[in-house]
């Protein structure tokens, strides 16, 4: 009996939460934009697309907080829980990436920006480069957001409110020190130059090692979660 697949089945009992809710949130924002587009002559560029990325992180946090205590109580190994949860996340992210790809193609290639000059799924810079970018870039970014959500969830479970507060303070402190050091050495120009040189492809690739790091750290935290 494979208990990792049991965990996947456990999550997929609530397909609605995994798939329909984020798509519904995204589409409601989209429809409002289409309506606005119908009444204005100017082209609209909107960041409504970001909702699904934010949702994916929230999904990671909530899923963990809701299902981990239950799974542990039901005698599921932490490793099985981890694998099953990431597998479900991967599956969801894949579905969303395909969805975003199709919507982007529909918007830019197959309809003329929905006939209302709305740029919702196909945006400058974001959709630059070969067509396949519109599939894998959302995929790796969504995955990164999900991993970040799981990391926050495991960190909170392991270290509680005080831990979360200390962690947040530490990040703020490190950020302040870092920006001070950067400012002191006049590195800001270099950093912005580097960022300007990056394409969407480059940035998306940079998330991969970060996603890997998030996943590894959350697994190490999970192994000590009670």
């Amino acid at each position: 009996m494979n208990r990792t697949s049991t965990v996947v089945r456990m999550h997929l009992r609530k397909k609605l939460n995994w798939l329909l809710v984020p798509v519904a949130v995204l589409l409601s924002s989209f429809i409002i934009n289409v309506l606005i587009g119908a009444f204005t002559d100017d082209p609209i560029y909107t960041g409504g697309l970001s909702s699904i990325f934010v949702y994916m992180m929230v999904m990671g946090i909530i899923t963990f907080a809701q299902t981990f205590p239950f799974a542990l109580g039901m005698g599921i190994r932490r490793l099985d829980y981890y694998r099953g949860t990431f597998a479900t996340g991967l599956l969801t992210v894949l579905v969303f990436a395909v969805f975003l790809f199709l919507m982007s193609m529909t918007e830019g290639k197959w309809t003329n920006y929905w006939g209302v000059r709305l740029h919702f799924f196909e945006l400058p810079y974001w959709s630059d480069g070969p067509i396949i970018n519109r599939l894998w870039i959302p995929f790796v970014l969504l995955l990164n957001m999900f991993a970040a959500g799981i990391l926050i969830g495991t960190y909170y479970r392991r270290f509680n409110k005080t831990g979360l507060l200390i962690g947040a303070l530490a990040i703020v402190l490190l950020g302040t020190i870092a920006s001070f050091v950067i400012g002191l050495n006049d590195y800001w120009t270099n950093i912005f130059n580097w960022l300007q040189d990056q394409t969407m492809t480059g940035l998306a690739l940079w998330t991969l090692p970060i996603t890997l790091l998030f996943s590894a750290v959350s697994y190490l935290l999970l192994r000590r979660c009670t």
């Binding site: 009992r13 609530k14 809701q66 109580g73």
Partner: peptide, 11 residues
């Protein structure tokens, strides 16, 4: 024991 909020008894 905690159960996920949106799971019903059958789940």
């Amino acid at each position: 024991q905690k159960y996920p909020d949106n799971y019903n008894v059958r789940d």
